[in-house]
């Protein structure tokens, strides 16, 4: 494997031949065939769309990305139904029944599934409600909160039912890769995506690996 985890500058822990490499950390378990345009889908579950905004932060490199991929279901295309894809990217954790359904659909249709950002990776901010009973959260939000009128917990049958806890996506389906960050920077997403799409080992620099 190529040495890739570059602890930049003075190199007290510069990756050496037998030392730590991100390549070994996330050796591509399934490699993608090159040349053909790859089909990519994305979705935001219990997230804030910040990771999708960060994807847009790759700026003009979006044009390069379009050379490599076609988008299937994403908030960018507004396609509602998921087709077979090479790569699925999930932002956000799993907080309700619809999240579970969407996530399982992504796992069925995507050869490679990526958890993008803190919420997908470990539940993130929405999972902070796990320290309270669901009834406490609903009562605080819809009954006891200050300045509410028409108090009452919404019960329209079209609303997806909330789960008792928010879960990271790896607790529901198998996840192939995780990219942490709240959100991961545009640079981290670009480094991650280009390496993955070109079948190279994934390498994140010190500046690109963070949890906040």
């Amino acid at each position: 494997m190529v040495a890739t985890h570059t602890h930049d500058a003075t190199g007290a822990t510069e990756a050496t031949s037998d030392a730590i490499t991100n390549a070994e950390r996330q050796a591509p378990s399934r490699t993608l065939p090159p040349a053909k345009k790859l089909r990519v889908a994305t979705a935001s579950l219990a997230g804030c769309f910040g990771c999708h905004m960060s994807l847009l932060d790759i700026d003009e490199r979006l044009i390069d990305l379009i050379e490599l991929v076609d988008f299937d279901r994403t908030p960018i295309t507004d396609i509602k139904h998921l087709g077979d894809c090479d790569l699925g990217i999930i932002e956000g954790g799993v907080a309700n029944a619809e999240n579970v359904e969407v996530l399982r659909g992504f796992r069925r249709h995507c050869r490679i599934l990526v958890a993008l950002g803190a919420c997908a990776v470990n539940g993130g901010i929405p999972a902070m409600r796990n320290g309270f009973a669901l009834s406490e959260c609903l009562e605080e939000a819809f009954i006891d909160g200050i300045g509410l009128y028409n108090r009452g917990i919404p019960n329209d049958p079209e609303l997806p039912l909330l789960l008792s806890q928010v879960h990271p996506i790896h607790e529901i389906v198998k996840v192939d890769y995780c990219l942490p960050g709240c959100p991961p920077s545009g640079d981290a997403i670009w480094a991650f995506l280009t390496a993955l799409l070109q079948g190279r080992p994934i390498a994140l620099s010190d500046k690109q690996l963070h949890y906040d």
């Binding site: 796990n130 990219l179 942490p180």
Partner: peptide, 22 residues
């Protein structure tokens, strides 16, 4: 804790979150 996890290249929690009430 976070900085050591960065140094060691921890990318995901791997295990099931316990979500304790403390």
């Amino acid at each position: 804790l976070q900085a050591v996890a960065y140094h060691c290249g921890m990318l995901e929690p791997h295990f099931t979150h316990f979500f304790p009430r403390r």
